[in-house]
């Protein structure tokens, strides 16, 4: 049967721009940055699998790293998901989250974005608070004025214990500010949160899923799985 001519069907595609915004400030040194590198490398095949049967979705990926300055880790040219590889990230000194948002906003400009796309995905991963809080607020404000920025699926993941991160600051980044902040207290959680957020956001942005009522957001992002993590007795808490 396969030797017979096949119907000339074709799938029309839309682009989905995925941006990693990754903190590599000094406090990320050691297990955190290693876990982050590993988690993102493991997340890529899972995202690929999640959209493998959606040929209408063309995922293009980039990454911004930020410490004292923000710069392209992968980019600025978007890389098709099936060619995307994650270069190992080391650590540096500061936490210039503001500049990372500015760099991202520059790419979400209408002129640079596709004619036909899905809501972009912005995944912010940080273990501290922005070095310049005022500039961060301004950068976020600007991002939310952009047509593509305000429609983006924005998820922040806070790494570390409660006193180390600025929960309010990171939550403000989330497209759904009602949601609890995704937290990673340890290696296992970080890997799991990165995989869940990257895959769920990609699917929510692009693939049609069953809905259960009136939506309050512009995409239907499922609830993050609830977790209880047990810290072994005697272990050091970071």
């Amino acid at each position: 049967m396969s030797s017979h001519p096949t119907m000339p069907f074709e799938v029309a595609r839309r682009q989905l721009h995925f941006l990693w915004l990754v903190d590599y400030s000094g406090s990320m040194q050691g297990a955190k940055i290693q876990a982050l590198n590993q988690a993102i490398r493991e997340a890529i095949p899972e995202i690929r699998a999640a959209v493998a049967n959606h040929p209408e979705v063309e995922v293009l990926m980039r990454a911004i790293r930020f410490s004292d300055i923000a710069e392209w880790h992968v980019g600025p040219d978007p890389v098709p998901l099936d060619q995307f590889t994650w270069p190992i990230l080391g650590t540096d000194n500061y936490t210039n989250t503001a500049m990372a948002l500015e760099l991202a906003a520059g790419e979400l400009d209408v002129a640079k974005m596709p004619r036909r796309g899905f809501p972009p995905v912005l995944l912010l991963i940080s273990d501290g608070e922005a070095s310049d809080a005022g500039r961060y607020r301004a950068a976020l404000q600007n991002l939310l004025t952009l047509p593509w920025g305000k429609r983006a699926v924005r998820i922040a993941i806070g790494i570390g214990q409660d006193h180390q991160i600025n929960e309010r600051e990171l939550r403000a980044f989330n497209s759904d500010v009602e949601r609890p902040l995704l937290r990673a207290h340890n290696v296992a959680e970080l890997v799991e949160q990165i995989k869940w957020a990257s895959t769920a956001a990609t699917v929510a942005s692009s693939a049609g899923k069953s809905a259960t009522g009136q939506a309050t957001q512009n995409v239907l992002l499922p609830q993050a799985p609830a977790h209880v993590m047990l810290i072994p007795n005697g272990g050091d808490v970071f």
Partner: peptide, 15 residues
């Protein structure tokens, strides 16, 4: 899963 604080371990193998 047992949580392992970042300081206590290296990332070993796949989770």
């Amino acid at each position: 899963q047992k949580g392992v604080p970042f300081e206590a371990t290296e990332v070993a193998g796949k989770t």
